[in-house]
Every structure is written in structure tokens, then in C-alpha cells.
């Protein structure tokens, strides 16, 4: 009662102030601050060019796909450290299938997705059924998938230079599917990888915010024991979250291979940490049960734009790392004070 009257009395400014205190408001504030830095340090007007923003979105798409899957896992109170390695494994396999073996995209994409789902499924099995701590289970998968990627590629990048039995190299064309993914659509305005990110993100959002499974994930993250006692399919729902994260990592791996025109067994090292940072900067709690994909989107844009602004200003590496660290810490600290 009094609450309503207060809100009415506060007026517009008060409501804005209150909104800024909410998780969404705080996340938006961080993004606005980063964008403000861009407006001030615009690098001879480069920040005002449409191409810069198009590129910023393209560059952050692979991380964004990982972060979308990561959100599903983190909401359950878990974590998936394996996404970077799964990305590398899938990109190596996808490049081998399409470049070296000449498979069509219709066969290679489903198989690549299956590989990602299997890796996620293995983590999910360990976490949900065998009750291994998510950090440990996915740490193991992180090592295993990286090893598989190196084994499948022989430690070399899988590129359009194919080695014959006699040691000579034969050069093959870049597969059509690579070109199709690494191009722009809608009047040359939207990179295909950004569109793929948007679709992945939309699916994850639908699942988490609109589907029963999403509710279950929140319930598990909030209080797993209570969720179990209320008869929720805890094991199945958790397992599915890790499978989804593996699938998203596979999509990211396909995008990575297409953009690099090769499968690199070293690709994606450290991407898992960036994806986690995006989720956390958005305001989703690592303890689980709180947050959502809307927040993750703001986190993705915050970190993506920060990288881009530092890059167009040619800030040296040392400064970039320090600034990124400060921004992540600052963003998370403001989130914490909101509770």
C-alpha cells in the first residue's frame, strides 16, 4: 500500500532512480558507461562508423553464443569450463569433415552439433547422475576435449592446405558453408554469425523464461534439495542444461572454424572465462537461481564493446587487461550492493 503511494509520489526521476537500483538497471548502467567511453575516445570518429558496431557485434557473437549456453548452466548453480575446448574440438572436426573429406554442410553440421552435445552430455552425466562437482566435472571435460581436438588434428591446424601421402600439399577451395557463415545478410548489414547468435540467444531465452524446463533450472539453482522434494526431475533438467551448453559450444565452434577458414586445435583457450565474465557482469548469480538471459545480453554487449573500444584506440595489451579487470570487478561490486 505505502509502496504504491511512494512510487506515485516519487515521479519520473524517482522511478528512474529505482530502476537503476534493479539488476537490469545496474547492468545497463555499466553498458552505458562503456559506451560513453567509446563516445569520448572515438578514435578519429571510428566509433561513429556503422562498420565498427557491425564488427563489434560480429566479434562478440562467438563469445555470446557460449555465454547464452553458460547462463543455462549457471542458473542451476553449476558452471561449464569445457566450452572453449569443446569449441576447439568441434571446429577441428567440422573443418576436417568439410575441407578434407568434402562432406556437405547438411551432413557435417548435424555431426558437429552431435559432438558438442555428447561432450556436454558427458559433463551433464557426471554432474547430474554421479553428483560430481560441476567445476571438477567440466574441468575434466575441458582437458579431455582439448586432448581430443589435438588428437583429431594431429596438433596442426586443419586448413585448406591438405597434406598428401607423399608429403606434398594440395590446396582445396574454402567450403561453401564457411563462406556462407562468414558473410553478411540483410543488405550487407548483419553478419551471419551475429544472426546465428541472435537465434541461439532467442532459443535460450525462450527455454529459460518461457518453458517449464527453464523454471526447473531456476528452482534447482535456488534450492536443489527443495526442488527434488517437490518432485521436479532434477537429474534430467540438469543433464539437459549441460547438453544445451555443449550444443551452443558446438555452434560457436562451427562459427569459429568458418571465420578462421580452418580448424585450430588451440582455438577457444580462455573463452570459457570470458563467457563466464559476460554472464556475471550481466548480473546472473554464480550461486544459481537468480539472473537470466536478458541480463547476459547486456553483459555480452558490455564486454564486447569494451574490447572493441580498447582495440580501435590501439590501447596496449597491459592497459587492456587492467581495464578489463577493473570493469568486471566494478560491475560485479555494484551488483552485489543491490542485494
Amino acid at each position: 500500500m505505502t509502496d504504491d503511494r511512494d512510487t506515485a509520489a516519487m515521479g519520473f526521476a524517482g522511478r528512474v532512480f529505482r530502476w537503476l537500483g534493479s539488476p537490469t538497471g545496474r547492468a545497463c548502467l555499466a553498458l552505458a558507461l562503456v559506451l560513453l567511453v567509446g563516445f569520448v575516445f572515438h578514435a578519429d570518429g571510428a566509433f561513429y562508423k556503422a562498420g565498427t558496431h557491425r564488427d563489434a557485434l560480429r566479434q562478440t557473437s562467438v563469445y555470446g553464443i557460449l555465454a547464452a549456453g553458460m547462463t543455462l548452466v549457471i542458473v542451476t548453480g553449476g558452471i561449464d569450463l569445457a566450452v572453449g575446448s569443446v569449441l576447439a574440438l568441434v571446429s577441428v572436426c567440422f573443418a576436417t569433415l568439410t575441407i578434407h573429406w568434402g562432406w556437405s554442410a547438411w551432413a557435417a553440421v548435424p555431426l558437429a552439433l552431435l559432438i558438442g552435445a555428447l561432450c556436454g552430455g558427458a559433463s551433464g552425466l557426471a554432474v547430474a547422475s554421479w553428483r560430481v562437482q560441476p567445476f571438477i566435472a567440466t574441468l575434466a571435460m575441458m582437458a579431455l576435449a582439448r586432448g581430443l581436438a589435438k588428437y583429431a588434428s594431429g596438433g596442426m591446424k586443419v586448413s585448406t592446405a591438405v597434406q598428401e601421402v607423399d608429403g606434398a600439399y594440395r590446396y582445396v577451395a574454402v567450403p561453401a558453408v564457411f563462406r556462407a557463415i562468414d558473410t553478411r545478410i540483410l543488405g550487407d548489414n548483419v553478419p551471419v554469425v551475429t544472426a546465428i547468435f541472435a537465434v541461439c540467444f532467442g532459443l535460450a531465452w525462450l527455454a529459460l523464461a518461457r518453458h517449464r524446463w527453464g523454471r526447473q533450472l531456476y528452482a534447482i539453482g535456488g534450492n536443489e534439495e527443495a526442488a527434488r522434494l517437490s518432485g521436479l526431475p532434477v537429474v534430467g533438467a540438469k543433464f539437459a542444461a549441460y547438453v544445451a551448453s555443449g550444443l551452443f559450444a558446438a555452434v560457436a565452434g562451427i562459427c569459429q572454424a568458418a571465420q578462421e577458414q580452418q580448424g585450430d586445435p588451440e582455438a577457444g583457450a580462455g573463452y570459457e572465462l570470458l563467457a563466464i565474465a559476460m554472464v556475471v557482469v550481466g548480473g546472473t548469480s554464480l550461486m544459481g537461481g537468480r539472473g537470466g538471459l536478458g541480463l547476459t545480453l547486456i553483459g555480452i554487449l558490455t564486454i564486447g564493446y569494451l574490447e572493441k573500444i580498447l582495440s580501435i584506440n590501439a590501447v596496449p595489451e597491459a592497459g587492456r587487461l587492467m581495464l578489463t579487470g577493473v570493469i568486471i570487478l566494478a560491475a560485479v561490486l555494484t551488483q552485489k550492493r543491490g542485494r
Binding site: 578514435a43 562508423k49 564488427d55 571465420q259
Partner: peptide
């Protein structure tokens, strides 16, 4: 991937 990102900034 980092080289590509930096080059995009240079092109912009």
C-alpha cells in the same frame, strides 16, 4: 582471431 579483430579496428 585476435589479428582479425585488430585489423578490423585498423580498417575502421
Amino acid at each position: 582471431p585476435d589479428a582479425r579483430k585488430e585489423m578490423e579496428s585498423a580498417l575502421a
